[in-house]
């Protein structure tokens, strides 16, 4: 088993990975575009208090995101402008892949998950840093809330 094995991925992220890898490289951009359209809106408490969301500096376009631990269930919320569909796509993958997981499952997601979904050449590694930044922050926020 190589380091790119998905043995450690929770089913939600493993499924997203399989969806991407099942496609030819060029078609993966279309799937990312579909994800970008599915990015859920923010819950009202964040809409009215956007300061609660933390800016992710690694992202190419302004994105604000927050992982919230409710009991032992994590929810991931993010918002990014319409004219930044790639960033919205990344946020949407994490919103769909992380939400509903336990805190420990989120902490166990490999940091290189963004590199495991076959987008490295279609999107470029530099752009994927944006998703890595969101994931890193989500994990830190989960750890902070567990410690609180």
């Amino acid at each position: 088993m190589g380091p790119m094995s998905d043995a450690t991925l929770p089913p939600s992220l493993a499924e997203i990975r399989e969806e991407f890898l099942a496609l030819a490289e060029r078609d993966r951009l279309q799937l990312l575009l579909e994800f970008s359209r599915e990015l859920p809106g923010l819950p009202p408490r964040y809409e009215s208090a956007p300061g609660l969301l933390e800016a992710v500096e690694e992202c190419q376009s302004p994105v604000r995101a927050f992982a919230e631990v409710d009991g032992d269930v994590v929810h991931f919320y993010a918002t990014a402008p319409q004219e930044a569909p790639t960033t919205r796509g990344f946020a949407s993958i994490l919103a769909q892949g992380l939400s509903g997981l336990s805190a420990q499952q989120v902490l166990d997601v490999p940091d290189d998950f963004p590199l495991m979904i076959g987008l490295t050449r279609a999107v470029s590694p530099l752009r994927l840093n944006g998703m890595a930044g969101m994931l890193t922050r989500a994990k830190r926020q989960v750890r902070e809330q567990l410690a609180a």
Binding site: S61, P85, T86, A122, V123, S124, L126
Partner: peptide, 27 residues
């Protein structure tokens, strides 16, 4: 564009896309 997907969301009629990362730069 900077955003690799922006063209796909809608572009000027007839326009083609050239991406700086994936088209202009060597891998």
């Amino acid at each position: 564009d900077e955003d690799v997907l922006l063209y796909e969301t809608g572009h000027i009629p007839g326009a083609v896309k050239i991406d700086w990362h994936t088209d202009l730069l060597q891998p």
